[in-house]
Nucleic acid binder design. Structure first.
Length: 489
RNA sequence: GGCCCCGUCGUCUAGCGGCCUAGGACUCUGGCUUCUCAAGUCAGCUACGAGGGUUCGAAUCCCUUCGGGGCUACCA
């Protein structure tokens, strides 16, 4: 059918921000972006806000912000502009009105005076009769008299597209040759009673006017494709100019239900707060329905744009797996340089009020970061892990108390204190050597027992970054003070 | 109900007629390493939804069936 030859690729991401962008939206955006970048084409970003009751400015701004944060840069759209704007559908209402009236003139569309109640009655009857519910064509060919009558009754019409008999076929890049019989595609509404356009009208008009060549979107829109194609026809678009469709498989929740915005963890904002890297999110999402092959999984954004092809996109739905995302995030964090890690870590420490951000604090954080880099899977874990370095004194966790108050622990602490007080060169190597000699060799204690007590005394927890390095960072005075304090617990 | 899409380990996937007694990753289990927790490393568990064909040969092609999902709005 239609081809891309000779056409420069233009892909669009056109969400309807009725809430925070969720992982399903972003997976679509990511594939759109990757396809545009891979082909050297244009990535267009458009906001579909025709449903004014559900879309808010706040959500629109959040969507823009999320895309930017993820590194999905667009060539045309909000903030960057372009030759085919505006890119907010609410600013293009006159365009849709123009086309709607043109369709009426051409008899491709007609005014429908049926009330919602009447339509519902028809549908119920159809369902009862085991037929496909849908518009019955009541107003398709009204006489002038009938129209006058409806008008005097005060009825407000909608604009409805006339679906001719026949079939719509198109080649979906992911699903192959598709065919829809119009028997199952009833005449659909283009313009509401209040004059505002519906998705079906706006999306098709914009894709044509904005010269979109490829539409990669969720498979929930698959069955609405014939309606869009019908609008292309009415607009007089040549067959070879039709956008090419590719319907992406769903991203499902773990419970096998479709991911919804109601669950907190589907919102990208949530992942951002938790401390996931944008690149980890994109890498993981890329693997949902696509794979680079050759047993490869770890890809950067650049590699994704180089490797991505629609041919390698699956047609079957994928379940979202948090564990896998976490594993990838952990890998990406471990691959960070210390300076990069520091840049990401600082806001989390400041936000949780562990530090205020003084130069001294930052120096200490930077020294501590290598100790925890391989111990976290997300940045939000950092404050709890480094807190002991920035507090005056530690509070021993309840479940660790028993281990530090028993007699052998006291003995360990006393000996350690004595040993460490003499130390002049406070390095982790010296600390370790001295304590091993005294506690492990002389006392014959198992290392995990001996160092366990010290760990609790100095960090307040059974679990901490490596002990001797931690003590070095804490400093001699503070370390000794904490051990002394633990002695009198 | 009607129309449509989908079906390989628990999960994401590789596979596109012989390379498959099905490979990788995550998870899980066990070992090693080890000052805790991690990380690292080694090993293990576990899959072609089912039934018919086609073929010398099928996870790969065809049919049926079962299962999951979407659409069926003056939502997108």
């Amino acid at each position: 059918m239609s081809t891309t030859e000779g056409r420069k690729v233009k892909v669009r991401f056109a969400p309807s921000p009725t809430g925070d962008l969720h992982v399903g939206n972003i997976r679509t955006a990511l594939f759109d972006w990757a396809y545009a970048r891979h082909t050297g084409g244009t990535f267009l970003f458009r906001i579909e806000d025709t449903d004014t009751t559900r879309v808010t400015d706040e959500y629109i701004n959040a969507a823009i912000d999320t895309l930017k944060w993820l590194g999905l840069d667009w060539d045309e759209g909000p903030e960057v502009g372009g030759d085919n704007g505006p890119y907010l559908q609410s600013m293009r209402l006159d365009i849709y009105a123009h086309w709607a009236s043109k369709f009426i003139e051409q008899k491709d569309a007609y005014y429908c005076y049926c009330s919602p109640e009447e339509l519902e009655t028809v549908r119920e009857a159809q369902r009862a009769a085991n037929q496909a519910p849908g518009y019955n064509g009541h107003c398709r060919d009204l006489t002038l008299d009938q129209i006058e009558e409806y008008k005097t009754e005060g009825r407000i019409p909608v604009v409805r597209m006339r679906m001719p008999d026949g079939k719509t076929t198109f080649n979906d890049l992911i699903r192959g040759e598709m065919e829809f019989d119009h028997k199952f595609v009833p005449d659909f509404v283009l313009v509401r009673g209040d004059g505002s356009p519906l998705y079906t009208l706006a999306v098709a008009v914009d894709d044509v006017l904005m010269k979109v060549t490829h539409i990669l979107r969720g498979e929930d829109l698959l069955s609405s494709t014939p309606r869009q194609i019908r609008v292309y026809q009415a607009m007089g678009v040549a067959l070879e100019e039709y956008p090419i469709f590719a319907h992406l498989p769903f991203v499902m929740g773990a419970d096998n239900a479709k991911l919804s915005k109601r669950n907190g963890e589907v919102s990208i904002a949530w992942y951002r707060d938790k401390g996931f890297l944008p690149e980890a999110i994109c890498n993981y999402l890329a693997l949902l329905g696509w794979s680079p092959g050759e047993d490869r999984e770890n890809v950067t954004m650049k590699e994704l744009s180089e490797l991505f092809t629609v041919e390698r996109v699956n047609s079957s739905p994928a379940r979202f797996d948090m564990k896998k995302l976490e594993a990838i995030n952990g890998d990406k964090i471990r691959a960070l340089t210390i300076d990069e890690f520091l840049t990401w870590a600082l806001p989390f420490l400041i936000k949780s009020k562990i530090i205020t951000g003084t130069p001294e604090e930052i120096v200490l954080v930077k020294r501590a970061l290598p100790l925890i880099q391989e111990r976290i899977i997300m940045f939000s874990e950092i404050p709890a892990m480094l807190k002991f370095l920035f507090v005056k004194e530690v509070t021993v966790e309840a479940d660790s108390m028993a281990q530090i108050t028993d007699l052998s622990a006291k003995d360990v602490l006393r000996r350690s204190l004595k040993e460490l007080e003499l130390m002049s060169d406070w390095t982790h190597a010296n600390i370790e050597a001295a304590l091993r000699a005294s506690l492990v060799e002389e006392l014959g204690l198992k290392p995990r027992i001996a160092f366990g007590a010290l760990r609790i005394a100095t960090t307040g927890s059974k679990i901490s970054p490596p002990l001797f390095e931690s003590m070095e960072l804490l400093g001699k005075a503070a370390s000794l003070a904490r051990i002394s304090a633990a002695l009198i617990l």
